[in-house]
Structure formats: C-alpha cells, structure tokens
C-alpha cells in the first residue's frame, strides 16, 4: 500500500480483482498471489475467501528434498502426465531468499517446460526465508487462492519444511520427500525427523547407480517392526520411470490433511498475527510495565505475565 492510499481505494482494487479472479482470469490470480504479502490486502483476501470451512477441492502435494535432489525436474515431468489424465495443476515453486540481501534467484521453472497455450497449468515462483526450516510466507492463503480458483492439484516445491508455527505438513495432503542416491541425505533427514513426517519417501534419479541400494537402506530404516509400514519408491525423471506409479499412489492414498486441524491451525496463526500487531501498537506498554516491575520488584516472569495480561485486555 502506498502512502495516501485509503482503505476504500484498497477495497476497490480488491473488489475488481476479486471479480476477475472469480471469472477465472489468471492475471487476477497472479496479482492476488502477490498482494497476500501485504497485511492490509491479506485481511481483505481472507474476507473474500469467506468461509472458514470451504469444501476441499484440490489435492495438495508438497515435494521436498535437499537442493539439487531433483524436485523441479520431477514436477516438470508430472505436469504432462497429470494433464493427460485431465487434471489441472498449479505449482508453487519455492527457492530460498538470500539471508543478506533478501533477494532471490528463482530458477525452478527452467525444468518445468509448459506449452504456451496450456491453460491447465499455472506455475508461480516464490522466495522462502533461508535455511531448511523456511517455507514461503503466507503459503496457506496462496494455497487457498489456488484451490478456490479450481486447480485439481496444487504442488508445492520446497527445500524447507517449516517449523513449529507453520509446518508444511499441516498445509498439504501429502508430503513427498525426495532423496537422491548415495547422497547421505537419508541420514540428515532422519536426524531432522523428516523421514517420519514424510508420507512418501521417493528415491530420485533412479537411473543413477546406487539408487536401488539407497532405496533398500531407506526401506530398512523406515520399516521397523512395530511401526506402520511406509512406502519407499524409486523414480527417474530423466528416464520416465516410476512416474505414473507415483501419481496413482498419490491419488489412492488417504490424505493427511484433516480439515478440522488445518483450519484450527490457520485460525491460530492469524490470531498470533493479530496479537503481534496489537503488541507493536502498544510498545509504550512495555516500557510502562518495565518501570512498574522495577518499582514493585517483579521478576522477569512476573513482569511478562503482567504484560501479557494487559495486552490481551481492552483489545479492540
């Protein structure tokens, strides 16, 4: 929002965008996917999306794995396959943002060639906070926008999986972990707990030597007696191996996203955001409580409790 732009202007902008979006205009979708990063717009977009419990429409799949694991290439190969089956697909392709400058080089599209007049596919590149934990900001609203637009599948490519407050596993139906052969990644991911969280573990680049061995190792690690079995599959995007098998697995398996929890999580996140904003508005309160703490001899915990109490009372 620029200085001087009023809430009414903003509503007007959004109203016409939203109408175009509902008509299925991809330009409007593209614009909304950008505007969600501005809090004022995001609020109104939530209003437009309206229901806290829309019926689920898309199959949402996150494809994660280390840099260079083969995520983009795999997704690029799944796109024509899904189109052949009559499915429309949106891709959110995430690459990390530079921690120093905030800039990003988003190059996943190179590996996802799409015929120019193909209207059943939509690809959007997003920058994520740096590091393995990072997932793109406002990913939930973006997914919701793509779902409501009507894509049958929404695929999210990401190096990170998020952390306690937003984890990608809460936002999608399937979490696919890609592990290239002989990379040592399986050990890293096991330490990070991601092998457990993933719904499907896929060895990529199955045409390379060592793929079968990596798959066998993963089988052994994952399928311990007493634990529910977890499938390990091998694909080769280069040689078109295992791709349709992967698609049918995704279509047939039970979805992880339980809507009740998903929406509960979203509400919680929004509430946190609102509280954080309120907090920022009342910076002077912190100074006041600090002063009182000094006078009354409160310890840090007591002072924090008092601050929290006052922040939550007389909100608007």
């Amino acid at each position: 929002m620029q200085a001087g732009e009023s809430a009414q202007d903003l509503d007007l902008v959004l109203k016409s965008l939203w109408a175009a979006y509902q008509q299925g205009e991809r330009r409007a979708l593209a614009r909304l996917l950008t505007l969600v990063d501005q809090a004022a717009y995001r609020r109104t977009i939530y209003k437009c999306l309206a229901h806290a419990f829309p019926e689920q429409t898309s199959l949402t799949v996150a494809v994660t794995g280390s840099p260079g694991a083969g995520k983009s290439t795999l997704i690029g190969k799944l796109l024509p396959l899904l189109r052949q089956q009559g499915r429309t697909v949106a891709v959110l392709a995430c690459d990390p943002r530079s921690p120093l400058t905030g800039g990003a080089l988003l190059g996943d599209r190179i590996r996802m060639p799409v015929p120019v007049d193909e209207q059943g596919i939509y690809i959007r590149s997003l920058a994520t906070p740096p590091g393995r934990q990072g997932i793109a900001e406002n990913l939930d609203v973006r997914i919701a926008l793509l779902e409501k637009f009507g894509f049958d599948w929404v695929v999210i490519e990401t190096v990170g999986v998020g952390q306690a407050d937003v984890a990608i596993g809460d936002l999608v139906d399937f979490l696919v972990l890609l592990i290239p052969p002989e990379s040592g990644d399986e050990i890293q991911w096991e330490k990070a707990g991601l092998l457990e969280i993933a719904d499907l573990v896929v060895v990529s680049k199955g045409d390379l030597p060592g793929a079968a061995r990596t798959a066998a190792q993963l089988q052994q690690t994952l399928n311990l007696p007493g634990f529910p079995p977890k499938p390990v599959t091998v694909v080769s995007a280069a040689k078109n191996l295992g791709l349709s098998d992967l698609v049918s697995r995704l279509m047939q398996s039970p979805r992880r996203r339980r809507l009740q929890e998903y929406y509960a999580r979203r509400l919680l996140l929004l509430a946190q955001e609102i509280l954080a904003e309120r907090f920022a508005e009342k910076k002077d309160l912190v100074a006041r409580v600090l002063e009182e703490a000094r006078q009354n001899g409160w310890d840090t915990w007591e002072a924090a409790c008092e601050l929290a109490r006052r922040l939550s009372e007389n909100g608007h």
């Binding site: 943002r97 530079s98 988003l106 599209r109 920058a127």
Partner: peptide, 16 residues
C-alpha cells in the same frame, strides 16, 4: 546479471 540483481535484493525469475 541475474546474480547481481539478486544480490541487490531483487527477486529474479529465470525461466531458461
């Protein structure tokens, strides 16, 4: 050029 612009804080999309 793509790298230089990234380092200047832009989001650069490189489609190939």
């Amino acid at each position: 050029v793509a790298r230089a612009l990234r380092d200047a804080g832009f989001e650069v999309i490189y489609p190939g």
